[in-house]
Amino acid sequence: MSNALVEAQPLPAPLSERIAWQLRHNRKLDLWIAWYTMVVFYTLFGVVFVLMTEVMPPPGPDWSTERIVRWFSDTRGGLLNGFAIIFAVTGMAAMCNAIISYSMWRMSVSKAFSYAYLIIYSLAAIPGMLFCAILLTVGALRPERDPKLLVWLYEAAFLTFVGTMGIFLVGTLVWMIAILIDKNRVLPAWFGFLNICNLLTEVVVAPAWTARRGAFSWNGSVAFWIDTIVFVVYTCAFIWVLRRMVERETFSAGAAP
């Protein structure tokens, strides 16, 4: 942090005054808003998908029709309320994409990387959560409808949620290349390599399209559990390195301090 930024810190004061001071004077206000939005978004994502809708870990791909119908009835409240939250906050994903794109904008690499990531990830919410949320909401809205339709909605929802990873693969690849060839040291090299681990998980889920049971099915130990652990580590890592990036930002050209 530069001296100017350090000297500009406010004196101890009531919280409301400190917030007002930050809003008026903090040069990184926009970056911090983007970063905190990202934290709030991923927290809500975790709460909704794990606790409220019980979509993670996913129920079985080999369930009988009766069991799937019962699942829709049992989790109806969670699905409707949880996904209502997701539909309300989906736009927050744009701030996550924005701060990641900003990291590439700040690098010594071509702006094409930043734009490519922004375009690719502007589509990511659709296969990443919206398809699943819409299909399961439709199923939960009328759990008494034709069981064949419920099975269709159930399978389509989980296959799109777990299996459609191509967008994430290419997006992660773009960010990885940018980090590794960047000379401004905006993000650490180890995180560039960690992107490889994440993009490989997108390959590992591919068998979920054919496996109805076992380690490679959509709730399997390989296709879901190991992948999810890597994804959680990766997500925690990028939230942390982006925080460090904001802290180190001086808005000057060239290498980050």
Binding site: L180, A189, C197
Partner: peptide
């Protein structure tokens, strides 16, 4: 910088 990359590569290998 180069040392960072080698240590980063080792972290990647371990993961």
């Amino acid at each position: 910088e180069l040392s960072d990359k080698v240590s980063g590569a080792w972290a990647f290998i371990l993961i």
